[in-house]
Amino acid sequence: MCYINLIAPEHQYHKASNIDDTEVMPRRLSFCQFTIMSPDILEVEDTHKHPIFRHNQFSWPTEDNPFCIRYYVGVPLRTPDGFYIGSLCLVDHQPNKIDDTAREVLQMLADEVISSFELKAAKAELEAMNKEKDELIRIVSHDLRNPLIGVTGFAEILRDELDDDQHKEMASIILQSGEATLSIVNILLSSDYVKNETLRINRKVCDVAEITQGILTLVRPLSLLKNQRLEIDMPETLSWKVDVEKWKQIVGNLLNNAIKFTPDEGTVRMKIYAADEKTLKLEIADSGVGMDSEQLKNLFSGRKKFHRLGTNGEDTSGLGMVLIKKYTDLHGGNIEVHSKPGEGTAFTVTLPA
C-alpha cells in the first residue's frame, strides 16, 4: 500500500493513498515523522523488531483493525529550498525488503511528487499575477472612460454650435478621436474582468465638495446633450476622510448612470452633506426609467445579462456599479437603492468619518 503524507507540527495528513484510510492522524502516531528526519530512504523490514516502531499501535492488529504495519519504507519529500514537508511511503502487513532498483524507483516517484507540488505552486503564483494584470487593465480602462466621455461630450457641443467651418472640422476631429479611444476602452471593459479583487484604500482628509466639482465638469456635457436639469445641493467646502480616486469613481459612476437612464429633459439631483460628525451622505436621484426587482437584485453583480442601454442607446459595461459597491465597502460604508420601473432611481451612499 502506498501513501503520500504531509507532516504538520501536530498532525499527519494523507494526501493520496490506494486504500480508504484516515485522512488525518496525530503526528505522534505517524511513522513518517521519522522519515523526514532521515537524510535518505528509511526502511524498516520488521516493525516488531524495531526499537521504536514496535511500540506503535499500528504495528499490531486489533479486533477493529486486523491490518497492521509490519513493513515500512519511506522517502522524505524535500522541497528545492530544503524544507521537508512529508513522505512517500510503502507499507505491508508482513516483513519485507526492497532492492536497489525499487529504491531508485521510489526516489524517482518522490521527486515527481515534489515537482507536482512545485508546479501547483507556480500555477497559483501565475494565476495571482494574471489577476493583478487584469485588475490593472480594468481599473485603468475604467478610469479613462469618464474623462473621455467628458471630452467627446464637449466636442460634440462645440461642433454643433460653432459657425466657422474650420473650427467645426477641428471639433469633429476631436470628437472622432475621442470616440475611437473610448471604443477601445469599452472593448477592454466589455471583457469579463469583474472578479473579486485585491483593492487597497488610501483615505485622507480632503475637500470632497471641491473634488466633486471637478467630476461635475466632466459629466455636465452628457446632461446638456440630453437637455436635462442637473440639480446640485452641496456646501462650498466639506472636509472628509476619503480615498480621493475611489470617491471620484463612486460619484462619477452614479452621476453617469443617472444621466444615461434618464430621458431627455429629465432631472438628475445630487446632494452631499454631513448628516452628523461621523456620517457623510451622498444622495443621487433621477427621474429616469427605474428598475424592476430582478434588476435591483443583480445590480451589483456585474453579470452581462443584466446590462442595459441608456435611454439614448448609451452603452454600459456594468462595471461601474460593481466598483461603486466595492469602493463603498472599502470605506466601511454602505449603499442603498430605491427604484421602480418608470419612477426613477435613488441611491444613498453613507461613508463613516
Score class of each variant (00 low, 15 high):
K120R: 13
I98V: 15
R229Y: 06
M108G: 00
M270L: 12
T212D: 08
N312R: 13
E277D: 08
L162P: 09
D99I: 03
L309W: 14
K271C: 02
M234S: 09
V244G: 05
E45T: 15
E127C: 13
E125F: 10
S116L: 04
A16T: 07
R308Q: 10
V75K: 00
E127M: 13
L255C: 13
E104N: 08
P263L: 04
H142R: 08
P51E: 14
E104P: 05
H338I: 10
S115W: 04
S287D: 05
V337A: 09
I211V: 11
E314T: 10
G74H: 03
D292Q: 05
R70P: 01
L175G: 02
D165S: 09
R220P: 04
Q12E: 11
D286E: 01
N257P: 07
N202G: 09
E343K: 12
C89F: 05
I114R: 06
V268W: 01
L148V: 11
E265I: 04
I4P: 00
F31G: 08
G214E: 09
E45K: 11
S317E: 11
I36R: 03
L188H: 13
D233Y: 05
V219Q: 01
A110F: 02
N334I: 14
P39T: 08
N130K: 11
S116D: 01
Y71Q: 00
G344M: 01
T217S: 10
E197W: 14
D21F: 02
A171K: 05
A124T: 15
S87R: 00
V251I: 14
N253S: 13
T345D: 06
I4E: 09
N196Y: 12
M37V: 12
K168G: 11
P9A: 08
L188S: 15
H93F: 07
K120F: 09
S190H: 07
D46L: 04
L309Y: 04
L88G: 07
H331Y: 06
H55Y: 11
E265G: 05
L224P: 05
K325S: 15
D233V: 08
T181K: 03
V242M: 11
C32K: 12
D64M: 06
L148Y: 03
T212V: 10
A180I: 00
S183K: 09
S339Y: 02
F34C: 13
E118K: 05
S191Y: 11
K304D: 09
L319P: 00
K278L: 10
K304E: 15
L224W: 02
Y13G: 00
D286F: 12
D207F: 02
T350I: 13
R303T: 09
N298L: 03
R54N: 10
Q213C: 07
L109T: 13
N96P: 04
L230F: 12
G310H: 14
T62E: 02
S17R: 07
G86M: 08
A102E: 15
M108V: 14
I259C: 03
A180G: 08
